[in-house]
């Protein structure tokens, strides 16, 4: 069964590009446009991987992660952050504090995102 990736970003154009790339590579992709929608979607069905933006309406990326880590089902959910904030978010700190696998800086390449996701599932980390 194909792996389920949840994409969360209020920039629908950007999320659509990643969705096209990942779904053509065989992943099952769900898109949400803010943190609240993602939280609700995850509670319905836990994905294998979450890629989320940081700054979003209703519920921001960091707050989404904090809430997910409090839930047993998503305590260890693999998460990557997508952000244009660059140096303001420390990957090390995110990893240490919230077990975030890494930060993908915007503007990102869909190719690289696909490779990252492929590598993640290939090594059997999840």
């Amino acid at each position: 069964m194909s792996k389920h990736v949840l994409l969360c970003d209020d920039e629908t154009a950007i999320i659509r590009a990643a969705e096209i790339k990942l779904s053509r590579a065989g992943y099952r992709v769900t898109c949400c446009s803010d943190g609240q929608a993602a939280l609700e979607a995850i509670q319905l069905e836990t994905p294998d991987l979450l890629l989320t933006d940081c700054q979003m309406p209703r519920l921001g990326g960091l707050e989404l992660i904090r809430r997910l880590r409090e839930l047993e089902a998503t305590h260890d959910l693999p998460i990557y952050m997508l952000t244009a904030k660059g140096f303001e978010l420390s990957a090390e700190e995110l990893k240490a504090k919230w077990n975030v696998l890494g930060v993908i800086a915007k503007p990102f390449s869909p190719r690289e995102v696909l490779k990252l996701v492929d590598d993640l599932f290939a090594v059997g980390a999840v």
Binding site: E11, I14, A17, A18, K21, Q55, A84, K106, P107, F108
Partner: peptide
């Protein structure tokens, strides 16, 4: 941040 967001769209779709 504001500039990177549209740039991200351009870059992603050019690559696609």
């Amino acid at each position: 941040h504001e500039m990177k967001t549209p740039l991200a769209g351009i870059k992603a779709y050019v690559e696609l």
